[in-house]
């Protein structure tokens, strides 16, 4: 038969593919020796003994042990101290994440409210509001339309607020239908403060008053 004329090629390919398939499908337990050993770095902090897993991973509210210095968290925690706010009932603080001052979750974690601060103009208020609109699949607003948006009083400044319903496309690139976004942008002297809430439409509807109260409660950290 014609196809068997090239039996050497078939045999060669099988020789390559079979071990790959065996390795690729393996799901057992491997064993490996640790070969890299080094002295502890000078000044390494002592690890606290006897704290619970929840405390260690930041799920507990105790502040007995300060957070370890994350790569970006260092700047974030410093920046977070620059503001104070009142946390609405039913909101739970999520572990700190890079580039965010704070993350709150409500409605069993389906609604997320993020506070972040960027230095400089951060591209402009209008550009950021339109970026949020794009995340909800909405066309951009003109400068005139942005000027007519309702405002919140955050840190004594008029801060435009948006309220958009649609399909939300976040950082993962996946589109989630039936979402609603509340967002406020507060331009400060050298920075811009962002507060954004996203979640299922019905759940966010129940949080509108909380969102407004939260934004209004933000004050300077040294006040």
């Amino acid at each position: 038969m014609k196809m068997w004329r090239h039996w050497r090629i078939h045999a060669g390919m099988l020789t390559i593919m079979l071990p790959l398939a065996v390795v690729g499908c393996g799901s057992g337990e491997s064993r490996k020796e640790i070969r890299e050993v080094r002295d502890a770095a000078a000044g390494s902090p002592a690890a606290p003994v006897g704290i619970s897993t929840a405390e260690r991973l930041g799920l507990s509210q105790t502040e007995a042990h300060p957070p370890t210095m994350g790569m970006m968290g260092m700047a974030g925690s410093e920046a977070a101290a620059a503001f104070k706010w009142t946390t609405p009932e039913g909101w739970e603080r999520a572990p700190d994440r890079a580039m965010r001052l704070a993350t709150y979750l409500s409605h069993n974690g389906t609604v997320e409210c993020v506070v972040s601060l960027l230095s400089g103009g951060a591209g402009g208020v209008g550009a950021n509001l339109n970026r949020w609109r794009a995340q909800m699949g909405q066309p951009p607003l003109s400068d005139d339309a942005i000027a007519e948006l309702p405002t919140l009083n955050i840190l004594g400044r008029k801060s435009p607020m948006i309220d958009i319903s649609g399909d939300y496309t976040g950082m993962s690139g996946d589109s989630v239908p039936g979402q609603r976004m509340l967002g406020a942008v507060c331009p400060l002297q050298d920075q811009v403060l962002f507060i954004k809430m996203v979640g299922p439409e019905a759940a966010v509807a129940a949080e509108v008053d909380h969102f407004r109260a939260f934004c209004n409660s933000i004050t300077p950290g040294n006040s």
Binding site: P48, G50, I51, R56, L57, G58, P67, G73, P95
Partner: peptide, 8 residues
């Protein structure tokens, strides 16, 4: 990766 302390 963002644990407040190592596991002891």
């Amino acid at each position: 990766g963002l644990a407040r302390a190592p596991w002891t």
